[in-house]
Design a protein around this nucleic acid. Structure first.
Length: 197
DNA sequence: TGTAAGATTCTA
DNA sequence: AGAATCTTACAC
């Protein structure tokens, strides 16, 4: 499959890119194994005007990579335990990023993996940790491959999980997931299909 | 140097 | 519903 190019990550609408990422495959070379995981759940975080975003208070040591040019990963430690993986998008100076909340193994033999139905779970399953933050997604070690775009009838829209502290911004419908996937981390009763928007 | 708060997960 | 667990950010 074709590797996603720099141009894909440089798009300036992070909410749109979060939708486009559904169905695409994360390829991660680790321990001599090429892990291939299909993205089934994402959340968009906007650098500007989004209190839920780590960059809303400006640049810090942790979030510096979010301000860099799109096409890198931003991985941080959550609750002292979980390594959460984000895809940085847009041009340099704009701190947009997309959290990958759930994936499913591509190959049948990969189902030996531990659970991959949560943002902290899937990174643990393949040994992807915060020491890889800033890593290019156009590298041989870590990259995404393209897949046919999904239709609006297959995509569910939702509010983002665990960001109540963000007040009004917590209401933004910026979480997306593949409805038919068994690996989605959480379903809310108010979620709806993108085609019904 | 001290402290409060997590983009979560697991258990009771 | 509550604990686990520790880095990060920011106040003093």
């Amino acid at each position: 499959m074709e590797k996603l190019s720099k141009e894909f990550y440089l798009q300036n609408n992070v909410v749109s890119v979060a939708k486009q990422l559904l169905g695409k495959v994360i390829n991660y070379q680790n321990d001599g194994i090429l892990h291939q995981l299909k993205i089934v759940e994402t959340e968009a975080y906007r650098g500007f005007n989004d209190k839920a975003c780590h960059a809303s208070g400006g640049m810090t040591k942790r979030n510096t990579v979010m301000f860099m040019e799109g096409g890198r990963c931003y991985i941080y430690l959550c609750y002292g335990i979980h390594h959460l993986f984000n895809i940085v998008t847009n041009s340099e100076g704009t701190a947009d990023a997309i959290l990958v909340r759930a994936v499913e193994p591509v190959n049948q033999s990969d189902y030996i993996y531990p659970a991959t139905d949560g943002p902290g779970k899937w990174t643990k399953a393949i040994g992807l940790k915060k020491d890889k933050t800033g890593q290019s997604l156009i590298s041989d070690e870590l990259f995404l491959t393209n897949m046919p775009e999904l239709s609006d009838e297959e995509i569910m829209v939702s509010t983002r999980i665990g960001v109540d502290y963000a007040g009004k911004d917590a209401l933004n419908p910026w979480r997306f997931y593949i409805n038919e996937s068994e690996f989605v981390s959480k379903r809310l009763k108010e979620d709806f299909l993108l085609s019904e928007l």
